[in-house]
């Protein structure tokens, strides 16, 4: 039965989709729904960054800026130029991809982690421009009055409708990320991460692939930024500092470097944890993040998802067979 096989292959993805999409049926609480919405936009960025870091083994410390391009692109084009929000979102994503290509082409040709430095500098420049180009960005005051998204007569200003929209897109990105991992391109990325010379001698144009995945991750981030501002109707530069880039890297690592499902767990934790911590003392949040990042790297390099692997390994040992479920979030190595 092909349908049954399909269901079994994608059981985790289907289960997760059902749970997340049915959430608005159980709660109309705006606070909960907004947390879920932020989780969705965070997930979009982290999925892309996870592909870049976990699959291709390159760090970007400028992903806040790519999200910022989407956010400000949408904000400026819709409020100042009265452009259609969807078109604005598309154009912003194209811009983000172009900028990513511009940064990636020269730096990803080099051996080592030059991309990290270039994206760091780039992120800082974007932030400075957002603050300084007052005629365009309104400086630190930010831009308000950003319209809601609509399709025909459906208004996504409604929290429940927005939930379905934003999670629909996030789930799509999750799906295509999962697809990528198990493909020719995904394997070549993991290969070049582990032994670049070997991958090259097997015919992989490694710098091209690295640039490509950087551009994809920039597009993911940009789209996330666009959705975010259409939801909160306001944007200001403080959301797109270097610290946010660092938090994004933290989210990827804590969730599980190189494991697509790790992006889901990481985003959930990193959205919920500050909500919890702010009841005590907000100042400590980033300290906790920084320490968690270090501890994860040392003690749980596979991130939150590797708990599952650990459990699976133990179970396998007991069962003495290799018939474990390979349908779910299959552990992906990657250091």
């Amino acid at each position: 039965m092909p349908i049954l096989a399909f269901l079994r292959r994608h059981v985790w993805y289907i289960a997760f989709s059902i749970v997340i999409l049915s959430a608005p049926l159980f709660t109309g609480n705006i606070y909960y729904l907004s947390i879920l919405a932020f989780m969705a936009t965070r997930l979009m960025i982290v999925l892309g960054l996870n592909l870049l870091m976990g699959q291709a083994g390159q760090i970007s410390l400028g992903h806040a800026a790519f999200a910022g391009i989407g956010a400000y692109g949408s904000a400026i084009m819709t409020t100042r130029w009265s452009m259609d929000p969807w078109l604005a979102m598309l154009l912003s994503a194209v811009l983000a991809a172009a900028v990513a290509g511009l940064i990636g082409v020269p730096t990803l040709k080099l051996k080592g982690h030059y991309l990290a430095m270039a994206t760091l500098g780039f992120g800082e420049i974007v932030y400075i421009l957002l603050v300084q180009l007052k005629w365009l960005t309104n400086g630190t005051d930010g831009i308000g009055g950003i319209p809601s998204l609509t399709i025909g007569s459906i208004d996504f200003g409604n929290a429940q409708m927005f939930h379905w929209l934003v999670w629909g897109v996030a789930l799509l990105m999750l799906r295509i990320s999962l697809n990528l991992v198990d493909s020719r391109v995904g394997r070549s990325l993991r290969g070049l991460h582990r032994a670049e010379i070997a991958a090259m001698s097997l015919g992989v144009n490694t710098s091209f692939r690295k640039v490509q995945v950087l551009m994809v991750s920039a597009v993911f981030a940009s789209i996330a930024g666009s959705f975010y501002v259409h939801y909160v109707h306001y944007v200001s530069p403080v959301s797109y500092t270097i610290i946010f880039s660092v938090i994004l890297v933290t989210t990827v690592v804590i969730g599980g470097l190189g494991n697509v499902w790790g992006a889901v767990w990481g985003s959930a934790l990193m959205i919920l944890l500050p909500e919890y911590l702010k009841r005590y003392n907000q100042d400590y949040t980033q300290l906790v993040f920084g320490v968690m990042l270090i501890l994860t790297m040392i003690f749980l390099p596979g991130g939150l998802v590797s708990f599952r692997t650990l459990v699976a390994k133990v179970r396998e040992r007991f069962r003495g067979s290799r018939a474990g479920p390979v349908t779910g979030p299959e552990p992906r190595g990657g250091s």
């Binding site: 982690h113 660092v246 100042d283 400590y284 920084g290 790297m297 040392i298």
Partner: peptide, 27 residues
């Protein structure tokens, strides 16, 4: 502890340390 885990892991740890030290200093 990350000597064998590779350069990427070590760089990521320095990113974490940067965030932690900065926030600790603020506190």
């Amino acid at each position: 502890p990350l000597h064998s885990a590779g350069i990427l892991a070590q760089i990521i740890v320095t990113v974490g340390a940067s965030l932690a030290l900065r926030t600790a200093a603020m506190i």
